[in-house]
Write a protein that binds this DNA or RNA. Structure first.
Lengths: 149, 149
DNA sequence: TATTGTTATACTCTATAACTATA
DNA sequence: TATAGTTATAGAGTATAACAATA
């Protein structure tokens, strides 16, 4: 369908837009995502972070090391299990997440303000559906399995 | 506004989704974008490609070099001006763009099929507005300048 | 032996600075 | 001198394979 192709194009443009929406701290998308997750969900094991962000475990080790070097996160040992590392956001990291959220909100509302009321309305009506769409796309997909039995 | 925050979240999720929508040829997002542009618009100068994709000129030199190594593009000299390089997609590159487009369309229509008719409708109605939104966001922004004089 | 995490290595993506070649 | 492009260098982001430490 033609609509699908247009939607695909718009989605790809969005990728570019989102990457320019917030730039505080000079963090890339994955670094910001990890930081945001730590703020939202509290300290986490490295393995869980990797799984949650769809990265490999070594990839997450390195990302966390970079964030640690910038003192945005801390590695804490786990008392129950000597193997696990609990990653925790620092006050500085928390503050940066807040600033990015601000930036993003500012930029976005500036853009929305330039749309016609009709357009704004169309976008807002689509948000729940788009949220469902992304949730479906990001859910662990098992094509031969219709879901939980 | 609360809606803005939700929209921002959805947009970020979209970034993840788009990156998983098409994987043929193992190309990253920028590589695929350059290739697609070359298919759509024909041979281009390196400088124009860099400007069009929002990369630095050296960045584009390297990206084009990688694509050339994979024989997805070719560098051609320009007869009018010995300094310029015209980058052209090869048949293999063109074919790969086609395959990726297929993949993406498949994945996307699979996702849309899982939405309710109401949700699908809401998404489709928002596409033009979202296109405008991304166009606004990606336009060269000069806050103190209302546009071409 | 299985799990958690790190190190080693390699590749893409990206920038700035310095350079070459052509106009 | 200005423009087009490349090379040098550095850093983020990502993967797989091999390893160490703990359970």
């Amino acid at each position: 369908m033609k609509q699908d192709a247009e939607l695909a194009l718009v989605l790809e443009q969005m990728v570019r837009v989102v990457r320019r929406l917030a730039t505080a701290g000079d963090l890339g998308f994955p670094a910001a995502a990890v930081l945001t997750r730590l703020v939202r969900e509290g300290p986490q094991r490295l393995t869980d972070l990797a799984a949650g962000e769809g990265l490999s475990q070594p990839g997450m080790t390195q990302l966390v090391s970079r964030l640690e070097r910038q003192t945005l996160v801390r590695r804490n040992p786990c008392v129950d299990d000597g193997r696990v590392v609990l990653v925790e956001v620092t006050p500085g990291g928390r503050e940066l997440v807040g600033r990015r959220r601000e930036e993003r909100a500012q930029a976005l509302s500036g853009l929305l303000a330039q749309l016609d009321p009709t357009e704004r309305d169309a976008v807002q009506r689509a948000v729940p559906a788009l949220a469902r769409l992304t949730a479906l796309a990001l859910a662990p997909q098992r094509p031969t399995d219709g879901g939980p039995a």
